[in-house]
Amino acid sequence: MLSNMLLGRYIPGNSFIHQMDPRAKIISVLFFMVIVFFANHWLGYLLLILFMLSVIKIAQINIFFLFNGLKLLFFILIFTFLLHIFFTRGGTTLFEWGFIQIDSEGVITGIYITIRLVMLLIITTILTLTTSPIELTDAIENLGAPLKKIKVPMHELAMMISISLRFIPTLMDETEKIIKAQSARGSTFMTGKLKSRVNALIPIFIPLFISAFKRAEEMAVAMEVRGYKGEEGRTSYRELKWGLKDTSAIVIIILFGVMLFLVRM
């Protein structure tokens, strides 16, 4: 189950999006996050969905694989949808029972907000699926360079993010191993009352934390003996190259934003 999770995973490829400069990808994602809020009726949301489907196609990612990987986050979407259904008032009342009231405005807003969240989840997942952690780190550090002037430790932050992302699959694999080991000794995690299920998680988290701390310590020693002492005097193996395709991608996103703004009602 955990191995299907896509958060923090990178899938190597040669698509247009894979080849883009990571800085252009981050800027595009930031623009898209703003643009999503321009949509305020069905036509805008339809355009958003079509745009997203095109991006998935261009990134050469299997849509079923993408949704399967996001399954674990569906509960957030359902929770958001239900929150709007029960608490947003307006329009005609569709259902009423005791203190529970569902209005048409609540259903419509629920659907729209859920679409926005799905768009945000998909675009950020595409960013990590098509960009290696080290490229992401380089881009974050590069884009955040002006912040160094006000003593924000951008290099250290970028390195921390990079190592965290690198360890996500390792810790996922480790969690699965611990679950299997504990299951083999009779622990059950999926059955029983909520309290017993929560208690059953303790034998998973304790060995996982111990192992993570041990790994962190060994990693720190390995970095130190390889001469890591922060940003000072450091050069970079990777080169960031901004090309025509990167400018084009940003122009397309801006034009799409303008279009969404124009169809607002």
């Binding site: 990178y10 290696s132 952690p133 080290i134 490229e135 990079s162 190592i163 690198r166 990693m219 390995a222 970095m223 390889r226 001469g227 890591y228 002492k229 450091r234 050069t235 970079s236 193996y237 990777r238």
Partner: peptide, 16 residues
């Protein structure tokens, strides 16, 4: 391993 790819990792010490 610090690097995301084999070559990135091998270059880590040289970067430092």
């Amino acid at each position: 391993f610090v690097g995301a790819t084999v070559e990135d990792d091998v270059a880590f010490g040289l970067e430092n």
